[in-house]
Structure formats: C-alpha cells, structure tokens
Nucleic acid binder design. Structure first.
Lengths: 246, 246
DNA sequence: CGATTTTTTGACAGTATTCAACGGGGGTGG
DNA sequence: CCACCCCCGTTGAATACTGTCAAAAAATCG
C-alpha cells in the first residue's frame, strides 16, 4: 500500500478486507504533480474529480467579492481534498498548492461502484466527511469566539498534530509552509497581526522558530490556548461494523 | 409523506423510488417534543441517534472553556440535525431548541441497512453532508472575513431563503426566533453590537421589524451585503444516478 | 547579484467590546 | 387582575483589540 493512498487513510479507522483495499486502490490510479502556488482547481471551475494528497500541502479557499480570501482547510498528506465538490458540477472552493505536491485523482462517478459493492466504505466516507465537518466547526468557533493569539496557536497545534498522526518527523520542529498572509487568511486576521501574535508566542516560550521551522516548546499550553481537540484521532467506527463479507 | 420527513428532504434532490421512500420512512418512527430553550443533547453526552426536524427551530453550538458559545448551525424544519455525531460515541456539539419543536429520531445503526440496500441514498446522504459542510465554510468566510453588518445580513438572508425553500410563508416577513445574544453567538459578535447592526439594517431600509417579525425589504442588496450563496438550492445529483432498480 | 516576496516594526485609525443603565413585555404569583 | 420580576432589547461612554498605512530589513528566487 503506497503512502498517501485512500486505503492507508481508511485503514487508519477501520481494518480493511483485501477486497476493500483493492477497490480503494482502483479508485485513484492517475497521479498529478502541482507546483507550489499553482491552483489545482479554481472556484467555480468544473469539478468532476476529487483528490488524495500524496505529498505536500494544499489548501482550500474562498474568495469574497471585496477580494478577501478565507482559507477553509489545510490538506496534508493522506487527506482527501475537493471531496466537498461532490454535490455540484462546479467547485465551491479553490484548491491551491502550498508546496510542491503530488495528488492522485479520483473520479466522482467511481464512488457509485464503491457504494454498491462496499457499503461499509461508503459509510466510512460519510463518517469521515462528518468528522471533517466538525473540524471545520472547530475552526469556526476559533475564528468567531477566540482572540487572535489563540487562533494562531490553534492553527499551529492543528498542523503539528496532524503531521504527527500522519507519521511525519516533527520532534525537532516542522516546516509550516504558509506565509503569514496565508495564516491570516486562515485565521481571519491580517498578516501584520499574525506576525505580532507569532512573535508573542515565541516570547512566551510556547514555540520557537529556527529558519522557517517551528518547534513546539509547550504543547500543553498551546493546546489549551488554541482549545485544540483532535477530532480525527478519536473516531469510532464500531457502529458501522456488520462486516459485509468474511 | 409527512411534512419534515427524511423522504421529503431527500425527494427534493432526487426522485425517489417507492422502495426507497419506504426505507426512509422506516428510519424515523419515533417523535420527540422539545420545549423552547431545552437542550435536546448536550456536548459530550452519549449520542446514538440523529434527528430530523419536523417543526420548530433548533441550533447546534459549542462551548469554549472561557464560557463563550459559538452557534454553528441552525436547523429548520426538514433539516437533519446531529448527524455530525456519526463518527463518535459522544456528541461534539450541543443541540438546543430555539422554539418549541418536534423532531423525529433516527438511530445511527439504522444507516447500515440503508447503505446496504439503497446505496443511492447513501451517496445522497454523503452529498448532502458535503453540502452542509460547504454551507458551514460559507459561514466561516463570513465570520472570518466580513464586517459585522455583513455577518448579520448573511444570517438573516440565510434563514429567509431556507424558510422559503422549505415552503414556509415569508412574504409578509418571518419570525426569527433567536435572541440578539444568540445571533451574536452565531456571527461571532456581542449582543450589543448585533443590536446596533440590526438597527442599521433597518435604517438603511434593507429590512423592517414589526413585532418580532422580520421583513426583507431589499433582498438583492441584502444578498450582496451578506455574500449569500444558496448552496442547498443548486445541488446536482446526476452523477450518482445509475438507479439501483426499476 | 538584482528583483521580488516575505517578515518585521512603528504610529495611528477604526471597529467591536465592555460596562453600565434604562425601558419594555411577558409570564407568574399573590 | 394587578404587581413584580426577569429577560431581552436599547443606548451611551470608555476601552481594547485588530486593522491600516508605510517603510525598512531579511529571505528567497532566478
């Protein structure tokens, strides 16, 4: 099983049968490389496929008429991206590469066979979509109801925990491949204020920054400050089990 | 088909077979009444079922450690509520009745049979969950990147359009059964500032308020101000059709 | 190495919050 | 039936947080 595949992702949450594993592998055959800064898909553009991130970071964003941008979601290796475009012919968000990245392409229509032949995987997809929805709600609460410093902290811990969960090496810090302007667009702040808040986090000894890398110095306080809850780490799939086959 | 049933909701987006209709009706048999202000389910409480709103308004909310509340989502008649708790044994949000309400109860485990016997409905559920996720993203963009007046406008148009879509009479205005404090918790503002913004909207002749009712005076300008996009009205289900039976 | 982008810093402006007080309406109990 | 109380809406003044503007330093890219 390749790194950053759907099978690997789903297997995190549910022991898979060999047939299920094969069905998932069959979904994403073609790979695509995207350069840092490239827009893999623009808002409103036709959207017939979703993506699984194999390498690199992407983000989903929305442009408001005044030119403001809201970054809605970061996509790290192993994550599904653009699956939100399922209910529409055209994409609701833009999908941009924050670093050079590799994704594999999954046709929306391929889900038909998956749902018919492996209902359990269909339910798992639904459960994971709901989990992402709750994670998005966490961000809404962060932006709507916490101070600037907390929002920046939340973004940093979130990235940190997800990288760790995905098995990336993070003990000596990790690269946060976002400009302060992008962090601002994700947290509802200006880049200037993001800068102030990050240096404040450094000053308070919650994080350290060395050459583009961020090291977490006090995870507990950072988690408390950002009100971090790791939704994806505690998913319960027991209710959907009544295995379809042996 | 009763008002506010799953079958009615799903039928909005997909012509249903009789068998599918029956399967959906079988899901939600038991009804439950909730009084205004009552908490149907508290954050962290065990969650084995979801709800379909039959009458009244509910909302989902999250409590932050400092005591701040973020209202994440309004649930109007016909809406699904608490389906986000699917991936966990315990609820990620509280679900509160904004008015006296009637809901019908759907066991999570009932989805197993639905997904096995009616994969098309499973896909539709996934699509609708994704649509809700995008609507939530719209709110994040509103709270993160627009001014107070726009956020309040967005909430009002959203409620208005959804009521209209659900077939409620709204031509002579509608009742917004939320306190200004609740509107604030939904938009990331204080109740005091919500008050100021609402009177500003009145003064600008965008809305009128008469005895608890809100009447939309200039829908076009209000839609523009709130950057409203009606996600649920334009759902495309053609990709999931390969009907399972005749 | 020059050009461009990103980070950093300061001063200032503005929006939204906080605090406080008052009025109205609806429900409750006497 | 009326008085009372509580919640909600309304208003003003002072404060605070975050945004805006501008410019320089640092980092990145080709």
């Amino acid at each position: 099983m390749e790194h950053g595949s759907l099978a690997e992702r789903f297997g995190r949450y549910l022991p898979l049968f060999e047939s299920e594993r094969r069905a998932l592998s069959a979904l994403g055959e073609t790979e695509r490389h995207v350069a840092r800064g490239a827009v893999l898909r623009r808002e409103q553009a036709p959207a017939r496929e979703m993506f699984v991130v194999r390498r690199g970071w992407l983000f989903s964003s929305m442009l408001l008429p005044e030119g403001n941008r809201q970054i809605l979601c970061l996509h790290l290796p192993g994550d599904l991206a653009a699956d939100t475009s399922l209910p529409w012919g055209n994409a609701p968000f833009s999908l941009t590469a924050a670093t050079d990245a590799i994704v594999c392409v999954v046709e929306k229509t391929a889900l038909r066979d998956l749902f018919v032949q492996h209902p359990r995987l269909g339910m798992l997809m639904l459960a994971l979509a709901q989990a992402e929805r709750v994670a998005l709600a966490d961000r809404l609460a962060s932006v709507g109801r916490t101070a600037a410093r907390s929002r920046v902290a939340a973004l940093i811990v979130d990235a940190y925990c997800r990288l760790r969960l995905a098995g990336e090496p993070v003990v000596d810090g990790f690269v946060l491949p976002l400009t302060q302007e992008e962090i601002g667009d994700a947290t509802g702040l200006t880049s200037v204020h993001v800068n102030r808040m990050m240096r404040q986090l450094v000053e308070e000894q919650l994080i350290a920054r060395v050459g583009g890398r961020i090291r977490i110095l006090d995870e507990a306080r950072l988690v408390a400050l950002g009100h971090h809850v790791d939704r994806m780490a505690e998913i319960d799939t027991s209710w959907l089990c009544a295995p379809a086959e042996a």
